[in-house]
Computed example of a mutant assay.
Amino acid sequence: MSFPHEIQSALLFDTPVRHLEAVMRSFVQIETARTGVGYNLVEAKPGVFYRLFGGGEVMVTLEYVAAPAKAEVFRQPVESAITRIYCPDMPDRLRRHSSHILINVSHGALSSTPEIDKMLDQIGYVRPGTTLEQFMRRIEVCTLLSRLAQDDVPASVVHWTQSNQLFPGDMFEMIAQGAPPSPLHVHPYLFGGGQSPGGKALAGIRTFGAGHFIDREILIEPSELPWAANYETILAFLRVATTRNGYIIPDGDTFGPEDGSLSYRVRHRPATDDDVALYELEPLLHREYGFQADSYVPRERTFDDRSAPADVMPAAANERAELLDEWQAKRALAEGIGGRFEVRARNPEPGATPPPSQPTGFGVRRIFGRKAG
């Protein structure tokens, strides 16, 4: 997949600031000491604009604008429910700011603009810097610069454009300490869905930013679970996908922690005329909130491809072999990230006989967490 070529942040201040050069110098000093690879200053307008190049083909620009940013840039994120939750006075902060610093981090010497990108697409040119590791590096550099820019003067607002989110400056400082993908990088657009039969308000989540790490955004349809609980599961799903040897949990499988405290089913929703392709997470179990869906398969019997009981296996030898091969491949994926693969089956009713060719009544789990010993 193609990861975003450019990472940008905008820091909004209530007063004029004059520390841009100090930010630039601190960044070069820290990066040189940490990585051993320095940056060259290739363009400068003292106090107003700096362009740096180095650090593994990374281009950095810092620009100070002694005027408010364009209000229309913030229209969508300021209307997001999550912004109102994080910072109820965000509209006032946006109205009162009087200056801002723009930070851009990209790969290579060629900048990214709609015109340039269109031209490169037309000639089939694939930009360098398109690995997950290089994308993470751009995020790391932009995060460091955005934190340094607040050392002397705290920002009133930080606009992190990769996820199109607005944060109070002090909240950004706290949230930026988490490794990606984190709440900084995944915008949870919340939407309502009425009430459950028990009168609980239903809330759904559709992400923006998750698709920059994997090939699709993520959806959780309106659920009676707290949105924050579902959001944490979204981040866990992303960590499984982006960790070393990580992978996207296959369509129809379920995953959860080893203690069995929660379980979610993953569905790969194809694109339609009305929407793009998505990964949907369906809550099945969340013990902390007393939630259990009708479709949840209890852990009455668990096994893997090496200990499958006969009563859940297809009767035909070729179908059994195909199913066991599939389970073995999935076990290898799960163990590759330090997790465990298991299959769950309901205990059969007395005298019941399973269908001869269909392994019904089982749920496949991928488990994130410590490796089972």
Results as ranks from 00 to 15, higher is better:
V158A: 00
D152C: 05
P168S: 04
G169I: 11
S163T: 05
F167K: 10
L166W: 07
H159E: 11
L144H: 12
Q150R: 00
S156D: 00
L148P: 04
I175Y: 10
N164C: 09
D152R: 00
L144E: 12
L144S: 04
I175T: 12
L166Y: 10
M174Q: 15
G169Y: 01
D151L: 10
S156K: 01
S146V: 05
D151T: 03
V153C: 03
Q150G: 09
L145C: 10
C142F: 10
V153E: 02
F167L: 13
F167P: 02
E173K: 14
T161K: 12
D152P: 00
A149W: 03
T161A: 07
L166K: 07
S163M: 11
A149C: 05
S163G: 09
S146A: 04
V158T: 07
L145A: 06
W160R: 01
Q150H: 07
P168M: 06
S146Y: 01
T143E: 09
S146E: 00
D151Y: 03
L166I: 06
A155E: 01
S163L: 05
S146M: 06
N164S: 11
V153K: 05
D170Q: 08
N164R: 15
Q162C: 12
L166T: 03
P168V: 06
M171P: 14
L166N: 05
L144W: 10
Q150C: 03
L145D: 02
P154C: 04
A149S: 11
D170F: 11
W160G: 06
L144P: 05
R147D: 12
L148T: 02
F167I: 09
D152F: 11
D152N: 02
H159G: 00
A176L: 12
G169H: 09
D151S: 09
S156M: 02
R147H: 11
A149V: 06
M174T: 15
M171R: 15
S163P: 11
T161G: 00
I175N: 05
H159R: 09
P168L: 10
W160M: 01
T161N: 08
A176T: 14
F167Y: 14
I175D: 09
Q165H: 03
V157R: 00
D152Q: 02
C142W: 10
F172L: 13
D152G: 01
G169Q: 07
Q162T: 13
E173M: 13
D170I: 12
